[in-house]
Design a binder for these strands. Structure first.
Lengths: 209, 209, 209, 209
DNA sequence: TATGAATGAGGTTTCATTCAT
DNA sequence: TATGAATGAAACCTCATTCAT
């Protein structure tokens, strides 16, 4: 391994350190209450260093979302191309959401929040592109599966984009909702079981009778 | 009407003015970018006056959510007690969400965001109670309908709370998701149509075959 | 005196306090080394208050220059309209520069520095206008006197604007130069005497032989 | 040429590269807005390297001024020792200022600004000495010419130092003034013509009638 | 000698909140 | 009750400078 390559690797590791620290802090405090100094401390770096890797707080925050969107997108694509029935694919989608939720419970709310506009002002054009592309890619994959279901005569004859929106929105929304209930009422974690119920409803609702 | 009553009414009117101004500003700028001064200006009051009616920015913001939760709760209760079949009640629930979305597209994201922890730190115990109560009330009503469906042998035999969560989470999540897509891609507004599709999926999915 | 008027007056006094404090600090430390906190402390105010009266550090700094430009402009205009010979008016111009120098030795260098572009980026359009207008007004008055001298056949037949520039540039430049020598070499203050010599040279140089 | 000498030469070439880069950046951005990184990039070096050649930003900046002072001083000395009449020497002084202005329009303002105190805090004693010496040398040469004029009965009988200050201050001040007018009003460049007018005024003003 | 990643002090600015009127 | 000027804490971010390689 050449010296150049080692440096590059080192740099990416550092970047990842920051992202991990940021995820931790943002999770606990939220975007606005979290401070760059806290994140730096968590990453065992100085505040200035953060700015060598991310243009500003906003882009650091968005990076997390893009990361998870990439992950979501990748996982969903894997499902799409598997040699299993559509029905099974819908279950797998559910598992991806559970997966993401396990990885970081705040990711979905961040995603929604990000896209809902409060932020996004200081984002570079490049960042914005990444965001849109990955979002589109993930969404596109789901549409594809829904289409497959319709084409094979298994799913009801609704507009595939709308069905995909229902699927995505429901899964994500349920995660958010059950999670927020948990926080508010200190209930125990029903995300998994509720999503499983959701799957049953969904799959029966999607299918032609 | 006594002088005391008139004063009380005046006070409530003022309070409402502030809330309306706050909603307007928060909608456009988001919680953090909105400033108390802007809200005061919009309400044609001075900043100091806001603090005679609300303990702090946080509680003012939460008031909006509680307001809408109250509305949601009321509307949902109306549906529950109507003399219509469960299936029809599920449609009405959808309409309530559309209604809320029309009233203020940012309300649901606020609700989720509020409950997802970033805020809530400076809330008074009283405010917290209000929030929990109204949330529980709205949710309870939905559970009731789901139970009715199960009891009447119309709905599938899943845990009613889980089914209610699926219903609420899906409706809310779809609104959020479609709305965020709209913002990101400047698509036109598919919230209504997607929710209608959602209803079809939901209702078929909920029903015993 | 009405309450409104009193408030206005109070506000202007406060503004003047800040300007005086700023002048003091800027004089000692220069634009960049001076901090807003120091200025606030000097004015016996909190840092935030400064921003109620001036948009930012830049505009506060520029205000000083505009102030003195106004003063310069006013004094010069007075000279122009006096019933004295042109020759005498040139002496009076010299006195105005001495006056300004006595008031604040750093003003002229600030003026030059300001106009030489390093700053000026955050200036509001309004500020810029003030600056240009006052600059033009002062300069215009000098041109007028030069013209008068030429018209009366007293001064040499050069372009009046150029002659005015020579006059202004020389007087200002000499102040700067002698002052900077003083700082560098701890010489005593020859500004007055040198300007007096300058006048002699100038007036003889300007006159037709 | 020995290896030692070659290294020395190489080092001085590098030093010059940095100075040229610095001049370019400082000219465009001014002392404070210019960053060491920009200068390093312009010089195709890394930031750290700059500090091998200059103690700090301040000294790098001052080096430019010393450089030009040296140049000024040299040019002026050349004029002094030429076998031409005093009158002609005064013209040549004007040409030196034009020369310097053509080389870098910001040099004179830097000179004034430098000497007017904002900077100078972090300068090493050595640098300070350089500055004073070169300044004195240039100024001394002008005094010499003025003395020559007085001694020969050509110039008026004023204190030679004062006359030299008038000369230097006027020439420099006019350059600054006309240049700043140009920047503020986007006028075209009258520096040359105005300095020529200045010469006429000066020379006539200096001479015994 | 040269690098350039990392530092961290310190500056400007914002804005929720207070309090004298 | 209403005001709105003043506060001052705290955040983001920059950048001159250092130092291990």
């Amino acid at each position: 391994m050449g010296i150049h390559e080692r440096k590059l690797r080192e740099k990416q590791r550092r970047r990842r350190d920051i992202i991990n620290a940021a995820r931790k802090i943002f999770s606990v405090k939220g975007f606005n209450s979290a401070t760059m100094e806290e994140i730096a401390t968590e990453a065992e770096l100085s505040p200035g260093t953060l700015y060598l890797y991310f243009k500003n707080k906003e882009e650091l925050h968005t990076s997390l979302s893009i990361d998870i969107l990439k992950y979501l997108s990748t996982q969903i694509h894997k499902v799409v191309n598997q040699d299993i029935c559509v029905e099974e694919k819908i279950v797998r989608f559910r598992d991806v959401f559970i997966d993401v939720y396990d990885y970081d419970p705040n990711i979905l709310i961040n995603l929604f929040h990000l896209q809902s506009g409060e932020t996004l002002h200081n984002l570079s054009e490049e960042m914005m592109q990444h965001l849109k592309e990955n979002s589109a890619r993930a969404h596109g994959a789901i549409i594809q599966v829904v289409k497959e279901g319709i084409d094979k005569g298994i799913f009801i004859d609704e507009h595939p984009v709308a069905l995909a929106d229902v699927l995505w929105g429901s899964y994500a929304g349920i995660v958010l909702w059950v999670d927020s209930k948990r926080k508010l009422d200190d209930h125990k974690d029903f995300v998994r079981t509720t999503l499983t119920t959701a799957f049953k409803v969904m799959i029966q609702g999607l299918k032609k009778n």
